[in-house]
Design a protein around this nucleic acid. Structure first.
Lengths: 177, 177
DNA sequence: AATAACATGTAACGCGTTACATGATTAC
DNA sequence: GTAATCATGTAACGCGTTACATGTTATT
């Protein structure tokens, strides 16, 4: 059911088409929170419309259908948001590899960590740039919007992974080649 | 296919039964890396045995079957470990709620963050205790084993979430009740 | 004797991925 | 005119969850 609430949450910010939502998943949610492809999104939007959680707000060119959240949808979303489950369940193939690092020999483990550090550094740089652009444009008198709070969480998470990989590489057996 | 490699990885450390593996998932992997229940684990073990990646090493009381990884299994696992995908895909319902925090009013968002901080603090304490016990028993002359490296990643991740929730709560609109 | 923990199995259903399929509009 | 992007849809298959189902061994 998480897909449904991810979609509802995005539609709570602004109306969007299945195509728009697919792009948002790719650009943002996939790396941190949730993933879905268009083949899953389109049928789910139809079901959500049938359930009265969203409505077609506009029909555009190329069969584009822009959906908007309804009051019933907002209610449903709110209920889900304030009733989190008590167990945290995560699926992260990348972290799974970290857990199984001990099954590699030190040289290979080192290489995997270096790869990790690499792609992480790239993602951190991207996020840093977009946050900097946002901060430059923002009104310093106003409070931080929620989106900025979450971006901060992203920054700090990348930062930790970056520091940890450096720390771990230093501690792996063959200290240098 | 990640389930298969999670199981192979655990069996690479030591032989285990489906029951043992189910417990390991619950205790360790679920929170950070991967999740599976016994109903998924038992059939997968049968398939892995049929594919020659593991073998029944021992049959015990109550129909217990202890599996051990084979050389073919180690090869397969190694191949998977050193060939990570280039996109990071994460499913984390908890982080999804953080992304959708903006859909709640400030008071509710604050409550959700406080709940987050709470369960996070508990998990951090548990991990801290088990790491402290491990460090006390470890030989200071030997290098840190991989498992200790990963535990460090867990500690730092919890630490970041803890600091961030505190930071975010301070920045949410109604500064106090 | 009862309860908890150990131990495995499977059927039904729902969620998620891959692949196939089609067509319109925009930019070069 | 042709390639890229926009835009949607669905079938087949594989992965994951829930629920049902059964029996053994250890502890109190």
């Amino acid at each position: 059911m998480s897909l449904r609430y991810a979609l509802l949450g995005l539609l709570a910010e602004e109306p969007a088409s299945g195509y728009d939502l697919t792009k948002k998943f790719e650009r943002v949610l996939q790396r941190y929170a949730w993933h879905a492809q268009h083949s899953q999104i389109y049928p789910e939007l139809s079901r959500m419309a049938a359930d009265g959680l969203i409505t077609v707000a506009e029909e555009g060119a190329r069969g584009r259908r822009t959906y908007a959240i309804t009051d019933a949808g907002r209610d449903d979303l709110r209920r889900w948001m304030v009733n989190p489950p008590d167990a945290i369940v995560v699926r992260n193939e990348f972290v799974l590899r970290l857990f199984l690092l001990a099954t590699l020999d030190p040289a290979e483990a080192r290489r995997l960590l270096e790869w990790t550090a690499d792609i992480n550094a790239k993602q951190l740089e991207e996020l840093r740039a977009s946050v900097a652009a946002f901060d430059a444009a923002a009104d310093p008198a106003a409070g931080l919007p929620m989106q900025r709070l979450v971006a901060e969480f992203g920054l700090r998470s990348f930062q930790v992974l970056s520091e940890w990989t450096e720390w771990a590489i230093e501690r792996i057996d063959p200290p240098q080649e």
